[in-house]
Computed example of a mutant assay.
Amino acid sequence: MKSSRIILILISLVIVVAVGYMFTAAESPEAYVEKIEKERERQFKFIRFNVESPLTESQKQNLQTLTFYPINPAYKVKARLIPIEAKKVRELSMTDGSKERYIEHSYAEFELNGQTNKLLLLQSVKETDMRNFFLAFADETSGNQTYGGGRYINARQDGKTSITIDFNLAYNPYCAYNPDYACPLPPKENLLTIPIEAGEKNYGK
């Protein structure tokens, strides 16, 4: 057998194995729901019991559950990373009127609810892992079903030119529970004109 034919066969085998692994390693719908539920349970336990929780002791005693939208895989989106060539520091306004510094890193562009959306990805000036991003956003549910000051997502780059944004993991900032805390407000680029009916709802509603 010619060496070129052997190489072609080996390449074909590698492709078959890779595709097979991709399908077998893919997360099942049941596993995905279980993962989100576990994260929500972890979040509740932190807010209810942790000494660093923003809740007062009285609030902790009265808290029975956190309120979330039903888990919807459609709100887990794969976004295209659009780098910002001339990165600069952005001072985000805080709920108490102060400022906090972040680096404007890139934009995440994705399709959702029948339209193209784009969000600004920020990094804390203290961030050491360059694949981690801070995403603060508001949408058409803000101030009604969800906290008026917006919600947060901790996003991590998982591709060379892409990032997964899972709105089912959107959570409230500390100031949603306790106004004594100061929290960054979403930048103007992240004020979505669509409702994001996923993730955590407003505290107390």
Rank of each mutant, 00 (worst) to 15 (best):
E200N: 03
V16H: 05
G143T: 11
L191W: 11
A136S: 14
N168W: 08
V89Y: 09
K35A: 08
E127R: 12
R90F: 09
T128N: 12
R40P: 03
R48Y: 04
E104V: 05
V125S: 12
Y102T: 03
L92C: 04
E85C: 00
T116Q: 12
N190K: 11
A86Y: 11
L119Y: 08
M130W: 14
R90E: 12
A26L: 08
P184Y: 01
S53P: 03
Y174E: 00
I36R: 02
Y203C: 02
A86S: 13
N168L: 06
T141I: 10
K201T: 09
Q123T: 08
L63Q: 02
K126Y: 14
Q145G: 15
Q64P: 03
F110D: 02
S142M: 12
S124G: 07
F137S: 12
E52R: 05
E85H: 10
I71F: 05
P54E: 10
I103N: 11
P173L: 03
F23G: 00
D158R: 11
K2N: 13
E85T: 12
L63C: 01
E109H: 07
L185Y: 01
A26Y: 09
K88H: 11
A31N: 08
H105G: 00
L192A: 04
A138M: 10
E41A: 14
T67H: 10
V77E: 06
K201E: 11
R5Y: 13
P187M: 03
Q61V: 04
Q115I: 07
L66A: 07
S28G: 09
K205T: 01
G97L: 01
K38T: 09
S106F: 06
L10H: 11
L66G: 06
K118C: 05
G150I: 08
N178Y: 01
F133T: 07
V33K: 14
N154V: 01
T116S: 12
K118G: 06
E52H: 09
E57S: 09
M130V: 14
E109I: 06
G148E: 02
A79Y: 05
N144Q: 12
L185I: 01
